[in-house]
Write a protein that binds this DNA or RNA. Structure first.
Lengths: 341, 341
DNA sequence: TTGAAAGCGCTAACAG
DNA sequence: CTGTTAGCGCTTTCAA
C-alpha cells in the first residue's frame, strides 16, 4: 500500500538528465563533471533517495540477506548470538532473516527451504537437537551456498564452524568441583549424536582422569533436555547405591530443573550437593543459591560466525573451525569449602 | 557465490516454448492447454523451480517482508512475541526482518531507516524505553507505510496496537497482595512517558482505592529499569519512616534485582515482604522463593500484532487497539497467608 | 492457444 | 563528459 519509492528516474527527470548519469553521479564516477555530481547528490540527499535493493539484487543476483536458523529464539544463548551476528552483518550492509527450528529436524529442513525461497545469500545455523542426518546441508554445500555452523555443528571439513571449547569447559567444571571437595560428579549430557555432547563427554572423561577421580558409568546420562527427563534422571541418580555428591548438566534449563528437584527433596545445595550449569543463562544469579556456570562468549560467537560467513562467501573452500574460550564463574551452588569455614 | 537459481527462461528453453507460456502454465491460466500445463508443472516440480522473489518484488513493489523492531532480543517477552509474529507471517508467505533498538531512540530511528532501505512492506514495533518523541513514526504514517505497535505504544488514533490489560493487571496485583495481608504496597514504575507506565499507575491508584488502601506518594517511584536504580529505589523504600511491606515492579528484571537486594539485607520473602513481578520471565519459577507474576500472553500478542498488520495493509484507515487479558500467577513470593498457617 | 514486448529500478558496456 | 541500450526474472497487455 505504501507510496512508490523514489527512483533514479524521478531524480533524472527532475534534473532533465539521463538515468545513467544520475547513477554514475551518485557513485562519484570520474566521468561526471564535479558540478553535476554535486547537484545530483544534493537532490538525492534532499529527497532521501535510497537505491532499490530489489533492483540491485536482481541485477547482482544477491539479496544481502543472511538466513539464520536457531533451535529457538527465547533461549538467551541463541538470542545473544543472533545479536552478535546482526551487529556484524549490519556493519557490512547485510540483513538477517531469522528462522526457528524449534529443535525439530523437520522444521529445520522447512526453514532452509523457506530461506532459499527468500533467496538469502547464505546461512548461519545451529543444529536442532534432533538433527542426526545432514543431507539438507549437503545439498546447500553442493549448490555452493555459503554456510556456517555455530555451537552444534557437523560436516566440519566442509563448513566453517564456531564452537566453544567444550572439552576444556567440562574439565574446568570437574576440577573445580573436585577442588571444592566433591568426589562423585554426575553429568547429564545431551543426545549422543550432537557434537557438543560428544566433546563434553570427552572433557568429562579426561577431566576425571586429570583430577584423579574414577569414571562411574552410572553417573553419566544422556538427556533429551526435556523437563520430565531431567527430573527422571535426577531421581535415578539419587537412588543409586553409591549416589553422586555433585552434578552438572549440558545446559542451564536442565540444571535449573535438577536444582528444583533437589530442593524439593530437601537436599541442601551446596552443602550436600554441588551443582554447576552450562551456558550461563541470564538468570543464573537470580536462583537460590546462585548458580555456578560456564559462561560462553555468546556475542563473540555471533560476531565470529558472521565474520566466517563473509570469509566463506569470498573463498568457497574455506572451512576453518574456530574454538572460543569459556569461563567458569564460581557462584554459591558449588562452594562447599566456603560453607565449611 | 551461489550457483544461479533456476529461472522461467531455463524451463522455457528446455521445453522449447516461450517464457510467458511457462509463467501462465504455472498459475493454471485457462488459456493454456491442460497437457502443456501438466508438462510444465511437472518439469518445474522436478527441477525444484522457485520463483525469484526479487523479480516479483520489483514488479509488484513489495518485498513480503515485515520489519520488526524490539528493544532487545534477549528478553523472553520480546523473543516470544517475535516467535508469534513469525508464525503468523510465515503462514501468509511473509518474512520478518529483525532490528533491535537496544532501548535507545536513536537506534530505533536508525533501525527504521535500515528497514526502509530493505524496503520492508511495513513494520511492527515496540517502542524503546527512551522514545518520547514520535516524529519518526509520523513520517512512516505519512508515507502510508503500514505500522503496528505492541506493548509500548503511541499514536493510537492512527496506528493499530496490541497491548496487555495493564490497568487490570495492576489491580489484580494490588488486590492479591491485600488479600495476602499486605498493607503498604510499593510500586516501581517505568519512565513516565511510556504508555505502559501510565496505564499501570492508573491501575495502581484504582486498585488501591478498590482495596480500601490509601495512596502514599512515597511508595510510587519511576525507574529507568537499570539495575543500579532499582537498588537505589529499593533502599530508599526501606529507610522510609513508614516503609512498605510489599512491592511490585514494572518488569521482572527490576523485581529480581529488588529481591536480591532484600535478601542481601536479610529481609524474608514473603514473611516480611511480599514481592510480585510483571511479565513472567521464563525463570520466575527458578528464583527462590518462586516469583508471583503477571503472565502476559506473549505468543498471542505476536499473533495478534501480525493479524492487525495484515488488516492495516488492506485498510490504511484501520487503527484499532486490541487489549489482551493477563493472568496473575500466585507463587511463593507473595504468599504471606499460607506461610502463617 | 501461444508468443512477443514492455516495464518494474538499476548497472555497465557501448556510442556519441 | 553524457546518453542509449540491454538485461537481471517476472507478469501482463497486445498480437498473432
Amino acid at each position: 500500500m505504501a507510496k512508490r519509492h523514489l527512483s533514479l528516474k524521478d531524480l533524472a527527470s527532475e534534473l532533465n538528465i539521463s538515468i545513467s548519469t544520475v547513477s554514475r553521479a551518485l557513485k562519484n564516477h570520474p566521468d561526471i563533471s564535479p558540478e553535476l555530481t554535486r547537484k545530483v547528490q544534493e537532490l538525492a540527499a534532499a529527497r532521501h533517495y535510497v537505491p532499490n535493493p530489489l533492483a540491485m539484487g536482481l541485477l547482482k543476483q544477491e539479496t544481502k540477506m543472511i538466513g539464520v536458523i536457531v533451535p529457538d529464539l527465547v533461549t538467551h544463548f541463541y538470542s545473544s548470538v543472533i545479536s552478535g551476528i546482526e551487529e556484524y552483518a549490519k556493519n557490512r550492509g547485510y540483513f538477517i532473516l531469522l528462522a526457528s527450528s524449534y529443535e525439530s529436524m523437520e522444521k529445520e529442513i522447512e526453514s532452509i527451504s523457506n530461506l532459499l525461497k527468500a533467496r538469502v545469500d547464505g546461512m548461519i545455523v545451529c543444529l536442532s537437537k534432533e538433527t542426526s542426518r545432514f543431507d539438507h546441508f549437503l545439498q546447500l554445500i553442493e549448490n555452493e551456498i555459503p554456510l556456517v555452523f555455530f555451537d552444534r555443528v557437523c560436516l566440519t571439513e566442509l563448513v566453517p564452524c564456531v564452537v566453544a571449547d567444550n572439552r576444556n569447559s567440562v574439565e574446568k567444571i570437574v576440577s573445580h568441583l573436585k577442588e571444592e571437595g566433591f568426589k562423585r560428579i554426575a553429568f547429564i549430557s545431551g543426545p549422543a549424536y550432537l557434537s557438543i555432547s560428544q566433546e563434553r563427554i570427552e572433557g568429562y572423561l579426561s577431566g576425571l582422569k586429570k583430577s584423579g577421580l574414577e569414571f562411574d558409568p552410572d553417573l553419566l546420562q544422556s538427556c533429551s533436555m526435556l523437563t520430565e527427563e531431567a527430573i527422571r534422571i535426577t531421581d535415578s541418580f539419587l537412588v543409586l547405591p553409591n549416589p553422586p555428591d555433585a552434578i552438572f548438566a549440558i545446559n542451564d534449563m536442565v540444571i535449573f530443573t535438577v536444582m528444583k528437584e533437589l530442593k524439593r527433596r530437601g537436599i541442601k545445595i551446596p552443602e550436600d550437593f554441588g551443582v554447576v550449569g552450562f551456558a550461563d543463562e541470564f538468570h543464573a544469579t537470580f536462583s537460590s543459591p546462585e548458580l555456578t556456570t560456564i559462561t560462553h562468549p555468546t556475542w563473540e560467537i555471533g560476531l565470529k560466525a558472521a565474520e566466517l560467513f563473509f570469509k566463506k562467501m569470498e573463498d568457497p573452500t574455506f572451512a576453518e573451525t574456530v574454538v572460543l574460550k569459556t569461563t567458569l564463574v564460581a557462584r554459591e551452588s558449588s562452594k562447599k569449602l566456603k560453607i565449611k569455614n
